[in-house]
Simulated scan of single mutants.
Amino acid sequence: MAEAIAFDIAGELITKLMSRAPSQIGVRWNFKDDLDDFKRTLSTIKAVLLDAKQRYVKRTP
């Protein structure tokens, strides 16, 4: 449960940073691309953790 909340907060933070990145940071540092990569990585980690949790619950009597 706590993991889901942490991922949701991180996702919202990334979304807000992405909307401001081009205007405040500039495109020369590829900040938006880095945030896109981080968002995909975070999504993958979330999916793996949720799958592991579901498998654990199924195996636990």
Rank of each mutant, 00 (worst) to 15 (best):
W29Y: 09
E3L: 11
T15Y: 06
T15D: 12
P61V: 00
K39C: 07
S23Q: 13
F38V: 14
R55V: 00
E3K: 11
L42Q: 07
S23N: 11
L49D: 10
T41C: 11
N30S: 12
R28T: 12
L13M: 13
I5K: 07
E3Q: 10
Q54D: 13
I5P: 00
D8Y: 03
S19Q: 15
I25E: 04
G26E: 02
K46N: 13
L35F: 04
R28F: 05
G11R: 12
P61R: 10
A4L: 12
M18R: 15
F31H: 09
I25M: 09
I5L: 13
K32F: 12
W29K: 08
I9C: 01
N30P: 00
L13D: 08
K16N: 13
T44F: 04
T60Y: 02
K39W: 01
A52L: 09
V48K: 13
L13P: 00
D36V: 14
A10T: 07
D8E: 03
F38D: 06
A4S: 12
D37N: 15
D51C: 01
I9D: 11
K16Y: 07
G11Y: 03
Q54C: 01
G26A: 05
P61T: 03
K39N: 11
K53W: 01
L49C: 02
W29G: 04
A6G: 07
R55W: 00
T44E: 15
V57W: 00
E12R: 14
L35S: 06
F7Q: 02
R28Q: 14
I9M: 09
P61L: 08
E12L: 11
A6W: 08
